[in-house]
Design a protein around this nucleic acid. Structure first.
Lengths: 95, 95
DNA sequence: TGCGTATTTAGATGAGAGGCTAAATATCTA
DNA sequence: TAGATATTTAGCCTCTCATCTAAATACGCA
């Protein structure tokens, strides 16, 4: 999980929304894509960015590919952020 | 603090390093710029991005302009991140 | 006021990102 | 195997971003 890839992945609003959707459970590429007003090809590109950053995992199920959050890496992201926040700004990350 | 601006500001490694430097205390634009192998004009651009995202504050001191972290906004950033991390991935953000 | 220092703004450039359509690949089912 | 469905890859285009140099602005001090 190169930190640079993670930050870059998070810099796009579409990708952040994908992560938010995945908070509620795994979804197929197609199901995710339907939530956005963007071509499936473009969504596939976003999925690739999220995947190479290690933020999501994939699993084939029949004809579909199911995406889910890689929760352990999401924890690492919290740590990355902690490296920027000054000590007295520490707070409980409520989820 | 539009969330988009914050994430965009954080997506650049130079800007993240600026924030890390500011964790240890305020610094002038020139002092910050010396830590990077980039022109002062480019650094000024980065400062502008950080500032318009609300991540840093400025204060003129004589000929210099002193940059410091906007700690309250850094807390908000932690909240933004929390909006992406699934419940069972919650963790103490150690700083 | 005039000069030196500190910083930002203007304008140009090259690389990269995200978008699209069309084609390719993988899987299921008849 | 043929056809339908799901997803990714390829190729192209446009726009944004980080960077640079040069010029402009702001301040302190003689």
């Amino acid at each position: 999980m190169p930190a640079n890839d993670v930050w870059r992945a998070l810099s796009d609003p579409t990708r952040r929304e994908v992560l938010r959707l995945l908070r509620d459970g795994s979804r197929t590429a197609g199901a995710l894509a339907e939530s956005f007003d963007v071509s499936k090809a473009s969504m596939s590109h976003h999925f690739g960015v999220l995947k190479s950053a290690g933020l999501v995992r994939t699993e084939r199920r029949g004809q579909s590919i199911v995406y889910s959050l890689n929760t352990s890496v999401m924890e690492d992201v919290a740590t990355l952020l902690a490296g920027l926040v000054p000590r007295h700004a520490a707070k409980r990350v409520k989820t």
